[in-house]
Design a protein around this nucleic acid. Structure first.
Lengths: 169, 169
DNA sequence: CGGCAATATTTGAAATGTCAAAGGTTTCGG
DNA sequence: CCGAAACCTTTGACATTTCAAATATTGCCG
């Protein structure tokens, strides 16, 4: 069961002793790796900026679209449910990083956009965030990073084609 | 705005799919892929078994250790915080899938173990779960699965070696 | 013009997630 | 033994998460 991994923190134990089905093993390894890195990023975001990961994600989307985004669009891009976006934007607005406004044309819609303060705040976080990732992946060869980017893309495409709800964007 | 404006210079590309630093792109792709598959698994677990993903994870650990596990050990293996394990086990116990007991030797400890009903329940879920994964990854070549397993292992090892808290024990 | 389906967001209940602080229980040094 | 340190779990405050139901608004069709 020991392969190249001695970590005690390891979801992969679910698989039958490491001899299990390859797809299952791959999934468990992806999941535990992502969880590990997420927790590290979250820890640093919290310690250095007092922010959470979902907040960072949401701000990142708004940073790309200076005109702002409708909440439904934010929901799709961040892969967060509608109801969740409401609460996230509420808290970010309370902190002064975001403002909500309803366009004249369609009063069903709420558009969120960054405030100047939000832009400054996110800029600092983004720079740090990128450095953290280079640090975390410091032992991974550039060629491996490149290969992984493509192969994980294949996995993502496959998953997208086999959703019970039908392919989503 | 003239002189001391160095805040938002080359960060436009952050969080974007097209260009930018390879490590960042890889991370974002890993994250979105994992999120996508997690959501699919969660949907099916809920629809077919009325279970949640964290519950499934926890039961999987107990299934492998028929003698039961201390809550702290469960916390490490599932990568869930201590406080969270308490609530998870509480709900699973209320549903009759798990029992808690305190060993005679050390009354600080709580050990959780599967009930017979819990074993039956988990067996069924595990079988289905494995099938779902083969389905979701149906378009990924076996050779790619194998390559990915190794390369993601490298990423995980690198992350583990660069945790701000020091390597996870 | 009236009504109804489609669209967009909010709300509410329940579960999960974090961290920090508080509770008991051992264990060990003096 | 006694008291302090170490250990294990629970609790509490908050944020995030999902789904489903409720609201609100628009657009279209008859």
């Amino acid at each position: 069961m020991a392969e190249t991994d001695n970590s005690a923190i390891d979801l992969e134990i679910i698989a039958q002793g490491g001899a299990g089905k390859p797809e299952l093993r791959l999934w468990l390894r992806m999941l535990s790796t992502t969880k590990l890195i997420s927790q590290e990023i979250r820890r640093r975001l919290r310690a250095e900026f007092g922010a959470t990961l979902p907040q960072f994600d949401l701000l990142a989307q708004l940073y790309r679209e200076r005109e702002g985004l409708r909440l439904g669009e934010l929901s799709k891009r961040t892969m967060v449910t509608n109801g969740n976006v409401t609460g996230l934007v509420e808290r970010l607005e309370a902190d002064g990083f975001v403002i909500r406004e309803t366009p004249d044309g369609d009063r069903r819609v709420t558009v969120a956009k960054l405030t100047p303060r939000g832009e400054t705040y996110f800029s600092a976080m983004a720079a740090a965030h990128e450095g953290w990732l280079r640090d975390i992946m410091a032992d991974v060869e550039p060629a491996t990073v490149s290969t992984l980017l493509g192969e994980i893309g294949i996995v993502k495409a496959s998953a997208n084609n086999h959703l019970s709800a039908g392919p989503a964007d």
